[in-house]
Design a protein around this nucleic acid. Sequence first.
DNA 1: TAAATTTGTCTATTGATATAGACAACTATA
DNA 2: TATAGTTGTCTATATCAATAGACAAATTTA
Lengths: 249, 249
Amino acid sequence: MIGRQGVDSIERRSGVSLWRQIADRILHAISTGDFAENAALPPEMALAERYGVNRHTVRSAIAALVQEGVLRAEQGRGTFVLSRKRLSYPIGTRTRFSTGLQGQTSERHIVLLASSVEPASQRIAEGLGLAKGAEVIRLETRGEADGRPISRATAWFDARRFTGIDKAMAETGSITASLSRFGIDDYLRQSTVLSARHADAADLADLDLQPGAIVLVTVAVNVTPDGQPIQFSESRFPAERIELKLSAL
Amino acid sequence: MIGRQGVDSIERRSGVSLWRQIADRILHAISTGDFAENAALPPEMALAERYGVNRHTVRSAIAALVQEGVLRAEQGRGTFVLSRKRLSYPIGTRTRFSTGLQGQTSERHIVLLASSVEPASQRIAEGLGLAKGAEVIRLETRGEADGRPISRATAWFDARRFTGIDKAMAETGSITASLSRFGIDDYLRQSTVLSARHADAADLADLDLQPGAIVLVTVAVNVTPDGQPIQFSESRFPAERIELKLSAL
DNA sequence: TAAATTTGTCTATTGATATAGACAACTATA
DNA sequence: TATAGTTGTCTATATCAATAGACAAATTTA
């Protein structure tokens, strides 16, 4: 063996408290199967030793995860991992919210949080092929699966072409269904740009996340089959609940 | 306008210190163009008011970003945004490290950090179509562009078929070139699964990141044109330096 | 040159974070 | 039914994070 193993220590005075770093590690260990679902976590003392911190610090991390609904602690018995797998959200040429999660969830839908008409910013105008400042309709939506928020999206449409899409969206709860009211029976994903950051205050509230949570961010343009841009969107996915599976684009 | 605007406050007693949250916001503002590159940031007092914190807290955030090389502070003049754009790393059917960043960087290469032979774990065996426990070669690599680390990858190959690929990698500094030594002139990306998390201690060191940094994680399988799996890999990209552009898969 | 603006440094205080130890409460098991 | 193992609660202490105010140092502007 050349080289070295992965270090397993935590960072002090980093701006991120130890209990949150340990909470993140426990979440990661659960997601990789290192800590099995429905099974007991190692005892607090063992975790404290493993991460090189005090037992009380581990307790803070566990308390946060209990609060988040990831763990359940039982006095005298142990602390148990509740089963909530990360959903795998497919991204491809025909990315659709509802169909992609079939088989993984029993229920899923989109909620329209807000809508407005506004002038297009530079990047949105570019994405939609409009002049900067042209009127666009903005839809703020939240995707939910089995009652848990799993996405938070902002979508923009040409206001002239898609007048009333906000109402259609509120009524149908589906982008696909709303677009079909405007004669668009098929659309493709032209481009997707992906990044990640800490959730901001609005995302924390909308996605029911704890401060410090990470969101995956996609910026995408959907087009008609003949290449006409119809939708520009930015979506945020909580990284602790969702992974993105890139299928044939 | 229905609904509400994005909240612009920060979270207290969240496990993430205010100065780090503000540092993240400033980074985000720079990446969205809200704070222009090569221009002065608003004065500390203005930022303190904007984020609802004390001037000293803003100073802590700025100090961290100066440390990271994002800002430069000059007494009496102001604090300036240095220009370091986020690179756009394309992911598609023919994802290649070097070619994808052409035009964005003047120099890029891969460094082999370590290699070893080990038995395949469950998920790696599945990915490569081998029996669990079969011998695989593991390569630990770092990708760099213009002298800055931009990726940290672990790749596994069937040890029987690719004996000596570690040496080839060390000599050529290229996965593509190494594979061609084994008669593989073309390969495709079969699948990519994407997630994000905080960088662990090893990533922090290897990618020259500050604690609390976020990494994008891709888990991918590369196959020959006839569908034979040849490489299983997990790559970490610093979210502050890289965004992933999903092109035609 | 004087005034205004902006970053840099210092002291002081408060609350959150982390460590340490002791013991209570509860559960499983020998 | 003891006993060992586990989580829950309490006190105490030290360090980090955040606020507050004052003033110095450097630069720009009137």
